[in-house]
Design a protein around this nucleic acid. Structure first.
Lengths: 167, 167
DNA sequence: TTAATAGTTCGGAATTAAACGAACCAACCA
DNA sequence: TGGTTGGTTCGTTTAATTCCGAACTATTAA
């Protein structure tokens, strides 16, 4: 099958949308359509895409596109801009989307760290009640390790954020 | 309401299972029951819990517990041991569960990095076709930043793994 | 003032995931 | 040889997600 360069690129783009889509569905636990929108907008330049273009290229209903666009906006993943004299919105991924993503990860680790601190406290109370059980001591050690892990991840992520801002 | 120390600890444990449960449901995208099992086993010592104890404390059917236990086992999150002369299995979280979790995260980042490399290639091809569009150049820059981010996360995680092993 | 464009909202249909019960198997025991 | 314990498997039910169409709003254009 003969194909010119431009056609080949279109095919590549479609494949990439699919691949990225699956990735976001699983990694970021997004709905299929949200994932496809996100993927498509990543592959599109900063000029963005209109509502209509989205419905057409993704073959989805207006309502589905609308709700998912709103979702992505409140998540801080995408935003829109308008051109003077035009009513259409041009949707595109947020400028500081990388930052947002890192922040979300940090938040996640913080939450888990807080939980492990809670567990640690619980175990310390437990140990007080029955000081002979070595199992609990082991648990406490494990917990401290987990907390250290979380701390390390958090500081690493914060460093990365700094690096990106400096860049 | 008066409560003795041991009763209070039980209440604490129940709360912790709930909190940890929701955390795993969202962060690790596990099913509710899998999350509760995981949480309960984290709060239980290395002696583990039997099938029966799991069904009773989690108020779930045998079949549900069974399928979710299998899931958690194939995920490398939990394992079981048996005591000599006993037929019962004692389910507990995997010894190297931390390691497994980190590995899984590394895998996730690797996948995403591969995707971004693919996008980068796509954009470079695109640029070749229309070299005047600065938008594409910006996209490429963005992509490289993403790839750097992934790389950083991966090396960080690998370092952490090393630290844990050394510990 | 009417028509068209650019979206939003809401109620329901279709799909998917989670949990259950009943029947089953395999090992041990009386 | 039959009963009990410790689980597994499978078909069904229940619950939650996801998406759609139809009706609606708000802005601009004729």
């Amino acid at each position: 099958m003969i194909m010119n360069y431009s056609e080949d690129l279109k095919k590549q783009k479609k494949e990439l949308i699919e691949d990225l889509g699956v990735c976001f569905e699983t990694c970021e636990s997004m709905s299929p359509l949200s994932s496809r929108i996100y993927a498509l907008l990543i592959l599109t330049g900063s000029h963005g895409l209109t509502f209509e273009e989205l419905t057409e290229t993704l073959c989805a209903s207006k309502s589905s596109i609308s709700t998912n666009l709103q979702l992505l906006q409140t998540e801080g993943i995408i935003a829109y801009k308008t051109l003077p004299g035009e009513r259409k919105r041009y949707f595109k991924i947020c400028d500081n989307q990388l930052n947002n993503r890192i922040d979300k990860r940090i938040e996640g680790w913080e939450k888990e760290k807080a939980l492990h601190s809670k567990i640690l406290k619980y175990r310390e109370n437990l140990l007080e009640l029955n000081p002979e059980i070595t199992d609990i001591k082991q648990g406490i050690k494990f917990n401290q390790l987990q907390i250290d892990l979380m701390d390390a991840m958090i500081t690493n992520l914060k460093n990365l954020k700094q690096q990106i801002q400096d860049n």
